[in-house]
Design a protein around this nucleic acid. Structure first.
Lengths: 376, 376
DNA sequence: TTTAGCACTCGGGAGCAGCGAGTGCTAAAT
DNA sequence: ATTTAGCACTCGCTGCTCCCGAGTGCTAAA
């Protein structure tokens, strides 16, 4: 059914289309690649590929354009990733190393560099820290009536927020309260901490009852919020660089959906959960179909997922592609890196980029851990 | 030269154009507003207004469109602001009151609500805190090798960052170091603090020399960064709602410039400085030209500035308008609220909105201060 | 000073023709 | 059994013309 030549054709058609953004026809294809078969032969194969659902026509007598299914086959079976150049790799690494210097977090920088390199929109989700545990909690009085609550998780993640507190509590009382809570809850999983647990831990505080409750509530919320997932979005300005968004309506719907950040984040999060279940089935095997397939990185390449077109059911994003990879911090915790662009995307390049950013990010995290832990 | 009727005409033409986005012609104008003068008369006046530079034609036989100068005259002399409805006001206020509850800062929320209400892009700059003074500095060890440095300014502004430190310093040493610095620098203006001052304040620490220097440097940077201006941008997704950006090239250039956030921020910041100098001259007097001018708010209305079209020299923004107002925190410190949209903008509405957000923001700041200070 | 009347301008949409890149199909060639 | 040449056909795009309508400026009368 799907012989080697057809596979090669499909791959080539997709790559040509990605490059030119024009439907590709039989004639052009043969000349462009100096094929030793005639356009007519190509036409026959194309007709077959179309019947199998890998290609589509934009109108009755136009060239072919890949369908969702075509892209899917390409990604799953045909693609040959090309390694990034040394310069690019070094650039990405140095970009992330600088992150410690600046106020921006490593994760934020990862989103920035990915978007910059790919010229698409990037989106990085932090892990949900629910299964992580509490290491420290501090309450600093900023001024009478306001305090900064700092929560440190076992992975060294720091989150803080400014809260209102009753304005007649002394610095000393707050410090004592915080250490009581810390002692009581240290090592507990975030998910297992409740307002009741917090209150219990604070037993013995010298702060009078009603005032205490307010502070405890804020502490509780801070701990809970520390477990929430954050999201960094970068590169919206690249949107109009891609002809598929020159249709204003489309671009508008896209932006509107993207603006509802939590919707997109929730969507990605859910996916990740699903994906982890089916993981066993999806062991993608790159069956090579020509001898250009020298460089395979199956070993050290982080797993990536691609969602194409209709597979995405967010309004206004049904002719986009999402490329996502999962990065890990320590054992349990994982977050996601995501690249959003039109379906017509140079996957060989973008996948390499997202994979490398993933590797570099993970590397930096480890390096940080190593630096901090002293041993190992 | 510019009699009452011409003024009224100019005002009406601008308001019609703003509403319809179509060049306005003499016929339409007379019927739409049931004028008791004929189209021919209107045409004569329009010709005059054009000659004076207030109106333009898009082509030889088209209706008129306001020029930069026309908008300027409108803003300076003709506009009659309309107060916001009670509902809207309440909504804005409640939106900002909630800010304390969420992680987002008041200022970030102000940007969000302004953009949401106006459906334009909003941008809020925090003050530069250089002239503000240091109230607290704390250094919390997160784990060996990493610390959180918290800086609190006299206005109750809190900023913090995670830094690397040598990993053999004890918690106790850090606490002592921080209080030494705090004692030494408390009440000093941020601008007056240098690495030398910080080092001097830390004299007597038990941390050995080379390690100490690293920490001091980070503390110094944290203090300096606390003085920097931050910027919150909201509402990019509204861009394509406005027909003037349906030209892809234009929208693209706009986004590219906006992406260089620091450029825009610097630009606004510079303006503010300039504007403050010429402040005396600019005392805009609304000379009323018809008796609809019942509701003037000259008294309690915060000053706003509008920059129109060519007056803005940022690439890709030369047919936009910037509306800015300055909000104050306490005495010296002031930040900016800015609304960016196309020149054709319902100024009566947007100016009221930005003014009200300014008032509400200032109010919230005061309320917070009052709550914290207890007295007053 | 205002207005009616008129000739003129220009953008934009509708209708139409021709081009070109593409197709599918058939029949001959390998 | 494939592959290929040949051919008729399709359809989007471009450019052309034509016309409409909303708008103008100018002139002469009110």
């Amino acid at each position: 059914m799907m012989d080697e030549r057809k596979k090669w054709l499909l791959k080539t058609i997709i790559e040509d289309y990605v490059e030119t953004a024009e439907p590709v026809g039989s004639k052009v294809l043969t000349t462009r690649h100096k094929l030793d078969i005639s356009p007519a032969t190509v036409r026959n194969d194309m007709a077959d590929l179309e019947e199998m659902g890998y290609l589509e026509k934009t109108h009755a007598s136009s060239g072919r354009v890949p369908s969702d299914k075509g892209y899917r086959a390409y990604i799953d079976n045909l693609i040959v990733l090309e390694p990034l150049s040394k310069e690019i790799k070094d650039y990405i690494i140095s970009f992330l190393s600088d992150a410690m210097m600046e106020a921006k977090s490593l994760i934020e920088q990862a989103a920035a560099v990915l978007s910059e390199q790919s010229n698409y929109i990037s989106l990085v989700l932090t892990p949900r820290y629910g299964s992580s545990s509490l290491r420290q909690i501090k309450i600093l009085q900023i001024e009478p009536g306001r305090a900064l609550i700092v929560v440190v998780l076992s992975e060294g993640i720091v989150k803080d927020r400014v809260v209102r507190i009753p304005n007649i509590i002394s610095d000393q009382q707050l410090v004592e309260l915080a250490s009581a809570i810390e002692r009581g809850l240290q090592g507990k999983r975030l998910d297992d901490i409740t307002l009741v647990t917090v209150t219990a831990a604070a037993d013995g505080s010298t702060i009078p009852e009603p005032l205490l409750n307010q502070v405890l509530y804020e502490a509780y919320v801070s701990i809970k919020q520390a477990g929430h997932l954050d999201m960094y979005l970068q590169g919206i300005h690249t949107l109009l660089d891609h002809p598929e968004f020159h249709d204003i309506e489309k671009a508008q719907r896209f932006l509107t959906t993207l603006h509802k950040e939590h919707v997109v984040a929730a969507y990605l999060d859910e996916w990740q959960a699903q994906e982890r279940e089916n993981y066993q089935d999806n062991v993608a095997i790159n069956f090579s179909d020509d001898n250009r397939t020298e460089s395979k990185h199956t070993a050290d390449r982080p797993a990536f997922m691609v969602r194409i077109g209709q597979e995405i059911d967010l309004d206004g994003m049904d002719d986009c592609s999402f490329i996502t990879t999962t990065y890990r911090i320590g054992g349990e915790l994982s977050g996601q890196i995501c690249l959003i662009g039109p379906r017509r995307m140079p996957y060989t390049r973008t996948i390499s980029q997202i994979n490398f950013v993933n590797r570099a990010l993970t590397e930096q995290m480890k390096a940080r851990a190593r630096y901090c832990k002293t041993d190992e």
